[in-house]
């Protein structure tokens, strides 16, 4: 077994320990139903922020339409589970595949744009996806899709999240991931070094969209009803905030960002009017004083107590 696989094993053990503790607390009745739901939402948001980080953080393509892909995964999966009585896993895979297909189709033309233009174009595409869903009567239109079976459980969400994190971590550490990082650092230089920039940008976009679709499938089966208004560009902004808060280009950061933002908005649920003001101020101050986010490019293993998790390096990168 090589060192990389040993590392993965250590992370897996750590993940299982966390799962054991949280699941034990949930089953033991120490966590109320409000926080139970929020823990599931945190895991879904981690999938969303990690997949968005692959596009925005690692590949440096500023996408603002992530909620649109989530919506596609969401609706495709609920059609399969509710109307055709398929199991959740089929819905998740189909939702992810549909979102990936759409991501690839959308990514091919739009990823020619860069910076601000790409941001606005993806925002527009996300909105178009939502408006199109709103106009399809088969899925309930603006009123929403009702009667969805409640299939999402904590183990499902947690292990999907683990798979997502492993996949993205290993993708980033692979040849393809390195190519994506090179594109982020300097697209022209990367192209000059022989990297097919379009291919890798579309690849990152497609993978990101696929996981957003899977997250959407899980999200849909937490509730009995889903509505296109859950997938506005405000939702995309929300995922962006998680990624930026944690650090563009840090997977640890995405986990932390999703956790902090979701837990904070759950804790502030009784004061909704202040929630967004605090959000806004936090975002502005973060850009002033720590524009690289909480973790920057650094992963958990750069900190001393966690260094044992990473055997590939002697210490800090």
């Amino acid at each position: 077994m090589n060192i990389q696989r040993k590392n993965d094993l250590m992370y897996l053990v750590l993940g299982l320990v966390i799962f054991g503790i949280v699941y034990g607390l949930m089953e033991g009745g120490m966590i109320g139903s409000f926080w139970k739901l929020n823990i599931i939402i945190i895991c879904i948001n981690i999938i969303m922020s990690a997949s968005l980080n692959l596009i925005n953080g690692y590949t440096g393509q500023f996408s603002l339409g992530h909620a649109g892909f989530m919506a596609v995964g969401c609706y495709v999966s609920v059609i399969l589970t509710t109307n055709f009585h398929m199991p959740l896993i089929v819905g998740m895979l189909a939702g992810g595949a549909a979102a990936a297909l759409l991501g690839c189709l959308i990514g091919l033309p739009t990823l020619r744009l860069n910076g601000d233009y790409l941001a606005i174009a993806t925002l527009g595409l996300g909105e178009i996806i939502r408006i199109v869903i709103m106009n399809i009567n088969y899925v309930g239109g603006a009123a929403g899709f009702t009667g969805i079976p409640h299939l999402t459980t904590f183990p499902w969400v947690f292990f999907t999240m683990l798979v997502t994190l492993f996949f993205i971590k290993n993708f980033v550490n692979s040849t393809h991931g390195r190519a994506c990082i090179a594109i982020r650092e300097n697209e022209i230089a990367a192209g000059a070094m022989g990297i097919n920039t379009t291919k890798y940008k579309v690849m990152a976009f497609t993978i990101g969209a696929a996981f957003a679709g899977i997250a959407g499938a899980l999200f849909a089966h937490c509730f009995y009803i889903i509505n296109p208004s859950s997938f506005t560009f405000m939702a995309s902004f929300n995922y962006l905030i998680m990624v930026v808060l944690g650090g563009l280009g840090s997977l640890t950061g995405s986990v932390a960002g999703a956790f902090v933002v979701t837990a904070l908005s759950a804790a502030l649920a009784s004061w909704p009017e202040f929630r967004m003001i605090i959000y806004a101020l936090a975002l502005i101050l973060l850009m002033f004083y720590r524009p690289q986010g909480l973790f920057g490019y650094v992963e958990l293993t750069a900190f001393k107590p966690f260094r044992f998790l990473d055997r590939t390096k002697g210490g800090r990168e």
Binding site: F62, G115, D116, A119, F237, L240, V244, L248, E273, F274, R275, M276, I277, Y279, A280, L281, A282, L283, I284, M287, F288, P291
Partner: peptide, 22 residues
């Protein structure tokens, strides 16, 4: 970097929206 300013603009937008909502 441009991205920082863009995100700040999103923050200002939220602040104006929800500040005036308050």
């Amino acid at each position: 970097p441009r991205i920082s300013v863009l995100i700040t603009a999103i923050g200002v937008s939220f602040f104006l929206e929800y500040g005036s909502m308050y």
